[in-house]
Simulated assay, not measured.
Amino acid sequence: MWNLPNLLTMLRIVLIPVFVVVFYIEAPWAPYAAASVFGAAALTDWLDGYLARRWSQTSPLGAFLDPVADKLMVAVALVVLLQADPRILLALPVMVIIGREITVSALREWMAEVGARAAVAVSGLGKIKTTAQMISIALLILRDSVFGPSVYDLGVVLVYVAAILTLWSMALYLIAAWPSLSGKTISGAGEKN
Rank of each mutant, 00 (worst) to 15 (best):
A34I: 00
N3C: 10
Y160G: 07
E26S: 14
Q57H: 06
S169T: 09
M134T: 05
G188T: 01
L7H: 15
A118E: 15
M134N: 09
L140M: 03
F147Y: 13
Y24C: 09
I88G: 14
M170A: 15
G49R: 01
M1D: 15
P179T: 03
I16G: 08
A162S: 14
V94D: 05
L142N: 02
L181C: 00
Q83P: 12
L92D: 08
W29G: 04
A189V: 06
E113P: 07
E26R: 15
W46H: 08
S56D: 15
A132Q: 05
E109P: 05
L90M: 03
L165I: 06
N3T: 14
A177M: 04
T103P: 07
V146P: 01
G190L: 01
V114M: 05
V104G: 08
T103H: 11
R108K: 07
P86F: 04
A177L: 00
L4H: 14
D85Q: 10
G183S: 00
E101G: 02
A116I: 03
G155C: 09
V161K: 09
K71E: 08
L142K: 02
S169R: 07
D45E: 03
I175G: 02
A40H: 01
G148V: 04
R53Y: 02
V157T: 10
A171I: 10
L51F: 01
E109R: 10
G188L: 00
R87P: 09
R53W: 04
W55Q: 11
V159D: 13
L65V: 05
V114D: 00
A41H: 06
L61V: 13
S180K: 02
I175Q: 15
T9Y: 01
G124Y: 10
T103K: 12
I175H: 09
V114P: 05
A118R: 13
A121S: 12
V146C: 11
G183M: 01
M73R: 11
A84C: 07
F23M: 04
P60T: 10
A77S: 10
T166K: 08
V21N: 13
S123Q: 07
A69T: 07
G49V: 08
W2E: 15
L107P: 08
